[in-house]
Design a protein around this nucleic acid. Structure first.
Lengths: 110, 110
DNA sequence: ATGTCATATCCATAATTCATGAAGTATGGA
DNA sequence: TCCATACTTCATGAATTATGGATATGACAT
C-alpha cells in the first residue's frame, strides 16, 4: 500500500454513508449484502448509494459480484489490512515492544 | 469511539499533508516533533501545516505541548486505537477465528 | 418483444475543503 | 521595552465532493 492508495482509502471512509456501508459489510462478512439491501438499511437513495459504493470499490475496500439482477457487495479485508498496515508502518522505530500492545489490544468485539 | 469521532478521524487522515504528518509523528514516537520541524520535513508552509495539525488535534489523533516558544506534537496512539477498533467492531459476527488472523497479520514493520 | 426490477451513470446545483496571504498571540532575549 | 522567533487564526477564492432527478443498462419474466 502506498501513500496514494492509503489516501484514497481514508478519503473513502471519511463520509458517513460510506463508513456506514463499509461497517455493514464488515459485519455481514462472507455473506455480503446486495446494493439494494444496503440502501434500505442505511435509508439512502439508490443512486447516491451506488455512487458511494463505487468510491469504496475504487479504494479497494469492497468487492462486488453480480448475481442475476442483484449486485452483491463484500468488505475487502485485504484492502483494509493494507490500509491499517500503512498506518502502523515503523510506528515504534524498531522497538516492537512499544507498538505490540497497541496491536494486541485491537479486538473485533467478539 | 462513536460514528462522528470516527468520521472526523478518517477525514483528518484523508489529506496528504495530514497523513504524512501523522505518520511522521508515529515514527517519531515519544520524542514527538516540533511544528516547525514537521513543516520543514514535509516542505509545507508554516500556516498551512498549523491548520492541518489543528485538524489532527481535533480528531484526537495527535496531542501537543508547549515548550518555550516551540510547540511539540505527538501521535496519540489511544486515538488511533479507538479509530481502528471502531472499524473492526463486530467484524466477524461473533466468530473471532475469522478476524483474528487479520489482526495478527498487522505488523508495524519492525 | 415488452415490461419490470436492480443498479449504474449523467448532469446540474449545493456544500465542503484547501492553501494562502495577512494579521494576531505567546515566549524569550537584548 | 522592543524585537525576533515560533506558531496560530482569519478571510478569501479556487477546487473538489455530495446529492438527487432523469436516464441508461442489464437481467429475468411473460
Amino acid at each position: 500500500m502506498d501513500m496514494t492508495s492509503a489516501l484514497t482509502a481514508f478519503s473513502a471512509l471519511s463520509q458517513q454513508t460510506r463508513l456506514e456501508a463499509f461497517r455493514l459489510l464488515v459485519t455481514a462478512g462472507d455473506a455480503g449484502m446486495s446494493a439494494g439491501d444496503i440502501a434500505e438499511a442505511l435509508d439512502v437513495r439508490q443512486n447516491t448509494l451506488s455512487a458511494n459504493l463505487s468510491v469504496l470499490l475504487q479504494a479497494g475496500l469492497v468487492r462486488n459480484q453480480r448475481e442475476g439482477r442483484v449486485i452483491r457487495y463484500f468488505a475487502d479485508m485485504d484492502g483494509m489490512r493494507g490500509m491499517l498496515g500503512f498506518l502502523l508502518q515503523d510506528c515504534c522505530g524498531g522497538r516492537p515492544e512499544l507498538c505490540q500492545p497497541l496491536i494486541e489490544d485491537l479486538t473485533c468485539g467478539c
